[in-house]
Design a binder for these strands. Structure first.
Lengths: 195, 195
DNA sequence: GTCTATAAAGGGATAGAC
DNA sequence: GTCTATCCCTTTATAGAC
């Protein structure tokens, strides 16, 4: 897909650092100097690992991030047996990762890059994040375990609720994020029981 | 509180435009040129209305935005009588406003401005957005209408779920945002029923 | 109130030394 | 692989004309 230098240890470090920063703050809010500083190298040195510049770096690590979420979510969800444990697995995965703010990505990051890349990433976000979780609700719906609500909406709601726990500043945390996540899953399950 | 030129019609237009752009895309992603372009004037002309520059503009309009939310939420919630209509009123208010992404604001915008202003805005966000909605859950909890869950968490969850509807791209909208909001409120209410 | 011109700093990108 | 030096464009901000 591209003509990068051979994948080295060092290149991985660059991608990991950039991935974390972009996921947390977004495209415009992160400069290449921020990335370089976090790595302890100079900004120009980044171009050895990422010759195509900032936007290409953003697209590459964002796609990677989404794919890792897809893999992590599918694996953990697949390994869980009940509806509740599947949702817990999904929530715990999301809590274990650097917060990736889907809302910001769609509203702010996507308008700052080329439209072609933006729609590619949007599609990837759809089937890497929304679909694996929507699937849970779809299956539970067809077997009558829960009401049949719009599954994409439910997946989006669950993701944004869990993501909002990641964004919550420490001093508002009366309980741990995992405990709150479980409460919210209980709320969802009770709220979706067939009436 | 500050030494702005007399509040004119023109200054209001500037603030409104800046407010909308900053709320949608965030501090770093909006340039003063973007604001000026949207107004049809030159970037330097902004300084007549906002002599203290970009950060001061951001802080002023973000505070204004939060205060308007506080007023709008409190008014609409106060005018509603039942638990459900209060939550609907809050959701409809949020849907009626330019999407203000709290998560992005906390994670990205706040680290880009001076820490003092950041913590001021954080506090304002807390009592302008979270508290009015948390209040609904608190009151409903004490009279036994719903389970007593962490009300701040519930408020945060509701806000982020509704905000995520604003961010949803048009082509994923199988139903209107208002319809989805009602479904989600139903889910919350069913999920919070005393067991 | 808005303009042009311009200073000053920031940020992306390239060239070439080591 | 990383550095320094440098280019160039963007962005913030100021000065002064109209």
């Amino acid at each position: 897909m591209s003509d990068q230098p051979p994948n080295s240890e060092a290149r991985e470090r660059v991608l990991n650092t950039a991935e974390k920063l972009f996921a947390e703050r977004g495209y415009k809010a992160v400069t290449l100097r921020d990335v370089a500083d976090a790595l302890g190298i100079k900004q120009a040195s980044l171009y050895y690992h990422v010759p195509h510049g900032k936007e290409a770096l953003f697209v590459e690590v964002t796609e990677r991030n989404l794919r890792r979420h897809q893999l992590g979510l599918k694996t953990l969800i697949g390994a869980a047996s009940s509806l509740r444990t599947k949702l817990s697995a999904a929530a715990n995965w999301l809590l274990s990762q650097p917060p990736m703010d889907l809302g910001r990505m769609l509203q702010s990051d996507m308008v700052a890059i080329t439209p072609e890349e933006a729609s590619r990433l949007e599609l990837i976000a759809y089937d890497a994040l929304l679909m694996p979780i929507a699937d849970i609700f779809i299956r539970a719906g067809v077997v009558g375990e829960i009401r049949q609500e719009n599954p994409i909406m439910l997946a989006g709601a669950l993701i944004s609720v869990i993501e909002s726990l990641c964004a919550l500043p420490e001093h508002y945390l009366t309980q741990s994020r995992h405990v709150m996540a479980e409460s919210l899953i209980t709320l969802f399950l009770d709220g979706l029981r067939v009436r």
